[in-house]
Nucleic acid binder design. Structure first.
Lengths: 197, 197
DNA sequence: GAAAAAAAATGAACTAGTTTAAGACTTTTA
DNA sequence: TAAAAGTCTTAAACTAGTTCATTTTTTTTC
């Protein structure tokens, strides 16, 4: 994927909520850093401070923590046209607890902490963009945090499959289990059962 | 609680992220509606469209859904100095799935959908206020949605008690169970066990 | 302040999800 | 392209959390 294509993708994404002039578009693009991550390599590791927030132009990554027993808990899969990073660490500068690892060869556009602040000074419209982006993410997370607590594992799997039908085929069952919050063994049973229905 | 006190509370809350002139403060206050809710009565019920977003100046409310079996799942407790409502319904105008019920006599300041939009036109600084408010809420919800999936009920209780030490004594064990995502019977066992430790 | 209603505690029988282990299948790497 | 490493499946024994039923304690209401 070339520069022009990836810039078009991010400008389209931003364009859903705010209108930018040509000059503003060029200014915005100039604040972004292009990043490539090979499959199985890390974009971020626990202990680091998150220096960037990322927009994915190609590929797929998993964002996860390791619990006290060393078991992974995936908090999101990030694919093309999605944003990722650890916002808590990005904002507070405290070390992150997350790993972000590419599950496919991926390409991203990153914005550094300094440029993120600069962006609001130079193009205040971006306060609105992020206000709306965070508002929508919040709605999605409120739903997910309720589902996590009130649905059974089987129901969580059915909801995930319905919401992200394409993603199911791009990730391993093991990773899906770490996202749903169950063991790979039980994930295998659920999939067998649900497909039989 | 009189008008002046409740206005001071909300202006202090807003003042954490943006600075307003006296004129802007008066303008903002003029866009708000004062609401009182008696203990056990509803601020919102499933099926309605959320017409307001609320700031609580006094009291405590629970935000919950009822599942297919009629069992309640509490998604948040809202107390003084917190914001509540159903943002999804407020934004999309779709009917809400939530009930919001006062667990104590409560007082709130509401902003209507029309005034919320007007606010951004009249005082664009509020894009920034909400950008930061939503960003922080998002960080909290990401954490909660991960905890819901990766921690045991006992751990979720310990985390809740640590994060909201005062709230624990203001709500019933039954409501806490509906928040933690377990039965009241198991909640009772966990509390007995944790207090024994 | 007595009666009624709701919340909390306890226990026994049950179910959803875990653990451990082993074999079959797939993907990666040299 | 063979070997190694990782993923998926299956099954038996286990644990966290549920369900149902009963009693005690606390709160609400008139």
């Amino acid at each position: 994927m070339n520069y022009e294509q990836s810039h078009k993708l991010i400008l389209d994404n931003v364009g859903r909520f705010i209108d930018l002039t040509e000059l503003e578009k060029r200014k915005y693009i100039s604040l972004l850093t292009r990043v490539k991550v090979k499959k199985k390599s890390f974009l971020m590791q626990a202990g680091e401070t998150a220096a960037y927030e990322y927009f994915i132009t190609k590929g797929c990554l998993k964002v996860y923590t390791l619990d006290d027993n060393g078991a992974p808990h995936i908090s999101m899969f990030a694919i093309e046209d999605y944003w990722t990073g650890d916002m808590a660490s990005f904002i507070t500068r405290e070390p992150t607890a997350y790993f972000i690892k590419a599950t496919e060869d991926s390409e991203l556009l990153g914005i550094s902490r300094a440029n993120y602040q600069l962006l609001f000074q130079e193009i205040p419209k971006f306060e609105r963009f992020y206000r709306i982006l965070y508002q929508r993410s919040l709605i999605a997370y409120i739903k997910r945090s309720n589902h996590g607590i009130s649905l059974s594992a089987e129901e969580r799997y059915i909801v995930f499959k319905k919401n992200y039908p394409n993603l199911v085929n791009r990730i391993t069952q093991k990773d899906l289990a770490a996202y749903i919050g169950i063991t790979p063994e039980f994930m295998s049973k659920i999939i067998t059962k649900v497909n039989r229905m």
